[in-house]
Simulated scan of single mutants.
Amino acid sequence: MPDLKRTPLNDLHRELGARMVEFAGYEMPVQFPMGVMKEHLHCRAAAGLFDVSHMGQVILRGPSDNGATAFEALVPQSIAGLAQGRQRYAFFTNEAGGIEDDLMVANRGDHLFVVVNAACKAGDLALMQAGLPGCEVEEITDRALLALQGPAAEAVLAGHVPGVREMRFMDVIVAGSGFGELWISRSGYTGEDGFEISVAEGQAEALARVLLADDAVRPIGLGARDSLRLEAGLCLYGNDIDAATSPVEAGLDWAIQKIRRKGGARAGGFPGAARILDELENGAARRRVGLAPEGRAPMRAGVALYEAEAGGAPVGAVTSGAFGPTLGAPMAMGYVPAGLSVPGTRLYGEVRGKRLPVLVADLPFVPANFKR
């Protein structure tokens, strides 16, 4: 894979026996010798270390409130109301009310710190540079990003940065360490408690080795990352959400604060506001739902969903599907008409020409384990 970008941990992945694949233009580990199933279960039981250095890291500086008010012209979230030392899930929207990317934005006092998806990195940077006049948009290219996830994550990381014990879910800190300055958030993409750690690229391998030296920690690849986030009911950009999907359809209305909705002091003013505010008030025609296939066979992305066992046109489609190691059963997410989105509704997914039963299910499949 000579044309792919490599993260600062590439050599370590190979040393640990990772199977490498292409992902978002990077050479990334999809699994380690432990295998996807055991990696997944280990993260749920102890702690897993993920390399997420392919993600985009951006610092935003602006007048008066560090660009927070300006940023609200690009997202439906309350950024001006984000307290110092706190992080918020957000998404860029387009004029049609679709989602251009989902992201994390943190208030670090004298600037905002934004983390965006790898596949959308160039577009997001261009969007911020064009849409935030008077603000400085700086892409950070000399830092790696690690995620330490699982119930043992706090105890492991506190051995090197004691202050993380005081952090709550979505807190952010900048902390000194034996590996230089670390930018730490208590967040992740697994549904488990854990941290995302930005570290200077020259210190990334040393930090990773020290964390992996703990008996509780194992390296985890993209395969288990996907099954973990799916059990947690979390969206994957490009599968479960995209430029044609509205936040309300996607079930992400919880991420739009009251102050940005109709009647709020800072209502609207973001791309696609007309559609999004209307759907917040009146509902969307379709909804993202959990899906529980009967039997043991997963229903993968692209499987058409039908209301009847035979005949009729598709009413929806699966957007993500896999076997859930914690569940011990297959799981999926997809979109169906609002009238068919009630948990317990029976539908049929067409797999290799045969329609198999699937029930609409509550999300998440596995309850979140965040430290509130």
Rank of each mutant, 00 (worst) to 15 (best):
L12Y: 03
L12P: 03
L12M: 02
L12G: 01
H13C: 09
R14A: 11
R14V: 14
E15K: 11
L16W: 03
L16T: 02
L16M: 09
G17S: 05
G17Q: 06
G17W: 03
G17N: 00
G17I: 10
A18F: 08
A18N: 01
A18V: 02
M20E: 06
M20I: 13
V21T: 14
V21D: 12
V21F: 12
V21A: 14
V21M: 14
E22R: 12
E22P: 10
F23W: 13
F23N: 11
F23S: 13
A24D: 15
Y26D: 00
Y26L: 09
E27G: 11
E27T: 05
E27K: 04
E27C: 12
M28K: 14
P29M: 00
V30A: 15
V30T: 14
V30P: 08
F32R: 12
P33I: 13
P33M: 13
P33L: 12
M34E: 14
M34K: 14
G35T: 01
G35L: 01
G35R: 08
V36L: 11
E39A: 10
E39D: 06
H40Q: 01
H40I: 00
H40C: 04
L41T: 01
L41K: 00
L41V: 00
H42Q: 12
C43E: 13
C43R: 06
C43K: 04
C43M: 14
C43H: 05
R44W: 01
R44L: 10
A45T: 10
A46L: 14
A46Y: 13
A46K: 15
A46T: 07
A47T: 09
A47M: 05
G48A: 07
G48V: 03
L49V: 04
L49I: 05
L49K: 06
F50K: 00
V52W: 08
V52H: 03
V52M: 12
V52L: 13
V52G: 08
V52E: 03
V52A: 11
S53D: 00
S53G: 01
H54A: 06
H54T: 10
